[in-house]
Design a binder for these strands. Sequence first.
DNA 1: GGGGTAAGTAATCGATCGATTACTTACAAA
DNA 2: TTTGTAAGTAATCGATCGATTACTTACCCC
Lengths: 193, 193
Amino acid sequence: MPAAERRELILRDATAVFASNGYGGTTTDLVAKAAGVSQPYVVRMFGTKEKLFLAVLERAERILAETFRAAIPGPDGHERRERMGMAYVGLIAERGLHQVLMQAFLLGGDPVVGPEARASFLRIWRLTIDEAGMSEEDARSFIANGMLINTLVALRLGDAYGADPDIDAMFTVAFPCSFDVFKDSLPTAAERY
Amino acid sequence: MPAAERRELILRDATAVFASNGYGGTTTDLVAKAAGVSQPYVVRMFGTKEKLFLAVLERAERILAETFRAAIPGPDGHERRERMGMAYVGLIAERGLHQVLMQAFLLGGDPVVGPEARASFLRIWRLTIDEAGMSEEDARSFIANGMLINTLVALRLGDAYGADPDIDAMFTVAFPCSFDVFKDSLPTAAERY
DNA sequence: GGGGTAAGTAATCGATCGATTACTTACAAA
DNA sequence: TTTGTAAGTAATCGATCGATTACTTACCCC
């Protein structure tokens, strides 16, 4: 398999592993096993575990930005925000993407990852204003709801959907469209990598 | 020093260490050094690193709930939400509290921490509705903004306040009152534990 | 078909971490 | 004074992890 293709495969699987175990809890061997290659191969391809995480972050931001840009064309204002919100929730199919972004934000105090995480966040913030044409207040509430969705996904609260009226109510108001559409694609508490 | 007092000290310092380094990136020795005791003492007092983190989470939720409850008395509706929002931002003084809550939420896939994190989140959600009297929609946007504030604090974006007009604009709309009030109490990128 | 190169692994090393054990010190009660 | 107990540490062990080295395999090109 050509290296570029293998690289994308490893990055995809590494996203799920980092999402489940956090940065410090992820081993290069776990990533290697998830991708079906040997541990030294992962290290040699990315240099260090830290550089692997930065590559995972870069890919996550790229996919997110592309997803948002694809949702911009069409009626603006409230309708555009709804399209972008639905597209964001649809990214649950990209396993671990929301959690990995959050992991990066939580590493803001790290001397290497921190600056990259801040830059990523600001680029998304600017996209919602400069490209999607949101007002600052709209951008704030849009991104705030995104952080809430990240949290709900990471918490694996979807497991209890239907079992607790409080959870059902929260999902109903938190998701920009019928939650049932996405219920089945949510990660479950049993899902480990 | 009596054990109860020592325990509270260790929990406070452990909160800052977990916040900076994440769960997997935190060592019991780092916590011990931050608290000025030996590493075996930390392990013996809490049993395992995992139980130490659960104790940190429990303390964080307790402080948060007490802070919210103290902000409830008085005019309700918009004014009450604003008081609770200001109180939440004021918790920046409890170093690492926002980040540790977020770390716990991101561990939703962990078989031990996950259930506790979900329970903590739901108790806060219920508090905003049952005790603070928010509608479900108000509770959603209130907590969503809380998740945004968690993210901004963890990112150490305050470092660049004043240096980037985009950052200034975001802080202005993200914080429930003049951001300058809290600027000096924000953790900085140089702050490590 | 042989030489070069890209893809990939087995084996292993040094460092680190969580946990255990065995020990010491301070002090209050009998 | 002695005895019991709570507070705390030094030393260390087994396991794990990131990284390195040396090696093998497969395939393309002249």
